[in-house]
Amino acid sequence: MPEHALAGYLHSSFANGSGYTRLADVPDSWDIIDLAFGEPTSPTSGDIRFELCPQAECPGVESEEEFKAAVAQKQAQGKKVQLSIGGQNGQVRLTTEEARDTFVSSVSSIIDRYGLDGLDIDFEGNSLSLDEGDTDFKNPTTPVIVNLISAVKSLKAKYGEDFTLTMAPETFFVQLGYQRYGPGTSQGDPRAGAYLPVLHALRDDLTLLHVQDYNSGPIMGLDDQYHQMGGADFHIAMTDMLLTGFPVGGDTGNVFPALPPEKVAIGLPASTEAGNGHTPPAEVNKALDCLTKGGDCGGYEPHGSWPALRGLMAWSVNWDLFHQGEFAKNFDGYFGG
């Protein structure tokens, strides 16, 4: 990837109000293109399927051969094209080893079919949760967690070092873990912080983490204050947690270690229609100034500055094009793309 990268989701298997965009027509600004979405035949089957949007739903959809050619074309330009699994509707719970093995084989089949670079894990809703008594993120025991880690490691081993792995968890599954982890508290939700064991186990295999800084409630930062989405402050506080590390569930003896800045990007909605918590470009740039240059941090004081912060992720390429590419143009302008 380039020193600073722009990742975005492409609505490949469905249509919505943003309109359908052919893969070949994705602007060159986008360095990582996540094909949304691979979804399971049932939540616990592990059997992931991906098909292009039906022509009746997306009149401009390309043929499969045209799509494969577009994948190769993007890769020739240095782009990464990945399968994104999950999304809002794709609940994936690998409760058994059989489901784990089916996940590996079905995902491999899709990657091979289209010649893709890797995998994006966008598990939301009830896909990941922690069983009672599973309190150590470094040594998880919950089957859906253990089996997901095992499945991804199998895919990485199968495809080698060039296999890209990105993740797009919601803040509830990551930063909320600072306050509480799993069901073991008075306010226990078994999903709280449930991505932390996955991130920790796969941190060496991880290409990029871009937490969704949107569709989120208020989240407590390392200053022990609640931060609201939609402005620079939220992105500064949430990203600082990833780059600094934090005690899990308030236990100072159990710290989630900092991630390297090269493996972290900020996830945002590309437009007001794309999700709650849209951040105007000027506020995005304030967050980047603070995190990469140590300036214009407002009321939150981060624990360092990280010029190597990888970049931004957007939901989605389609919604950005709906607004004449404002998000990508701002990224290019900021990083000199």
Rank of each mutant, 00 (worst) to 15 (best):
P59N: 08
F234T: 09
V146P: 02
V26M: 06
V107W: 00
F137A: 06
Q175E: 15
H323G: 03
F103T: 06
L312A: 10
S316V: 11
W30Q: 04
G115H: 11
M241L: 04
P140T: 06
T239G: 02
L52E: 10
E262I: 03
G221Q: 08
S84T: 01
D224M: 13
G19Q: 13
N16W: 15
F103C: 09
S186W: 11
Y159C: 01
K153Q: 15
G193P: 03
L119Y: 00
G125E: 13
Y181V: 12
G245N: 05
F335C: 08
G249C: 02
T21N: 11
T272F: 09
E98Q: 14
A168P: 01
S42R: 11
T21V: 15
G311R: 08
M167Q: 10
G275N: 04
T244M: 04
S127F: 14
G8E: 09
G78W: 13
D25M: 05
D213P: 00
F327A: 06
E283F: 02
M241P: 00
G299N: 07
P54T: 05
M1E: 10
I85V: 15
D233Y: 08
L130V: 07
H210L: 01
F50Q: 00
G249I: 02
F327N: 04
I110N: 00
L176R: 15
G253L: 02
I266L: 10
H303K: 12
T171G: 10
D332M: 13
C290Y: 08
E51T: 12
